[in-house]
Each structure stands twice: as C-alpha cells, then as structure tokens.
C-alpha cells in the first residue's frame, strides 16, 4: 500500500510575469483625466510590474509644480456629467464641480495628485516629462515635480519602454 503526499497549495505571486513592463502616456490635464493613469500605475506597481509614466501636452499640468495641486473638473464638453451644457458656463461652476470631485476622491481615501505621484515613485514607478511639451511651455526640470527623473524626447521614451504594454490616456 502506498501513501500519496499532496504538495501544499500556495498562491502564485506571479514570478512567471517577471519582466512585464507598462508604459502610460498621460496627455490630459483635467482632474478627472489625471486619475485613470495614476490608479492604473499604482495597481500595476502593486502587481510587481515595472511602470513608466510619460507626461505630455496637457498632461504636463500633472507634474508642473504650479498646477499639479490645482487641476480642475469642468462640465463643459463633458456630457457624462448628464447636466445641461449651459450650466457649465455659469461663473463658479467649474470650481463647484472640482470641489465636489475632490471631496468624493478624498472620501474614498484616495490621495491628491502630488501625493499620489509620490506614492507611485515610492512603489518604484518612473516619471518622465516630454521634451517638446517642456519647450512649448518654456519649462525646465526645476519647474517640475522633484521626482520626475528627466525631460526626455518621445524617441527616448519609446526606447526605454521597449517591449512594454502601452496605455494612452
């Protein structure tokens, strides 16, 4: 008579996924469009995925020291708010919508943009700024969030994210 030894069942923590890379291009500067990239980057890092964020065009507002803590949400052009577009033009409406979204985000325990970027860097994420956007806006590294590693060209970004999965937001 033989006995069978069953191996202990232990979760796989994805060692087979070693080498997976994710590149996220952040091209928007609205408060609502800043979060998708941040949330996904944070999730990817928590799964052990090497993650790079590239900030370009309006996305520069997410890493510009002057604007990063002051992104806004507007009703205008955003039909997903399901409110009459005319309301969006009323003075103070953008401030009100922004305030409400900030509160909703805070209520969920989700950090504001600067703190969220810091959490991403602390989790091992890489932040890169777009050379052309910097030149167009007359900005240098000193004007940007201190954790941005460098201002690089689009070609540099494509090179350093070779083999990565890519998200454009």
């Amino acid at each position: 008579m033989t006995t069978t030894e069953h191996a202990a069942v232990v979760p796989s923590f994805g060692e087979d996924q070693a080498g997976r890379k994710l590149a996220i291009i952040c091209s928007k500067g609205n408060l609502d469009m800043a979060y998708p990239g941040l949330v996904l980057a944070n999730a990817a890092l928590g799964e052990g995925v090497e993650t790079h964020l590239f900030f370009t065009f309006w996305g520069f507002d997410m890493i510009n020291r002057k604007t990063m803590a002051d992104l806004k949400l507007t009703l205008l052009g955003n039909t997903a708010m399901h409110l009459p577009q005319g309301l969006g033009g009323i003075p103070g409406m953008t401030a009100l919508a922004t305030h409400q979204m900030r509160k909703a985000i805070d209520d969920l325990g989700i950090p504001e943009v600067p703190e969220f970027l810091q959490q991403i860097v602390d989790s091992g994420g890489h932040l890169w700024a777009c050379r052309m956007s910097a030149d167009m806006q007359g900005l240098e590294e000193a004007d940007l969030f201190e954790e941005v590693e460098a201002i690089i060209s689009a070609a540099d970004f494509i090179e350093l994210t070779a083999g990565a999965q890519l998200l454009f937001i």
């Binding site: 979760p11 923590f13 994805g14 928590g46 799964e47 052990g48 959490q119 602390d122 989790s123 091992g124």
Partner: peptide, 16 residues
C-alpha cells in the same frame, strides 16, 4: 510607508 512595504514583501506587497 509604501517603500518599506515593498522592501518587506517584494513585488506584490499587499497580496503577499
């Protein structure tokens, strides 16, 4: 801190 968590439980700290 998040950094500490990645040092203690590398790669997938929350799940580990």
């Amino acid at each position: 801190p998040v950094k500490t968590m990645f040092a203690l439980f590398p790669q997938k700290p929350a799940k580990k």
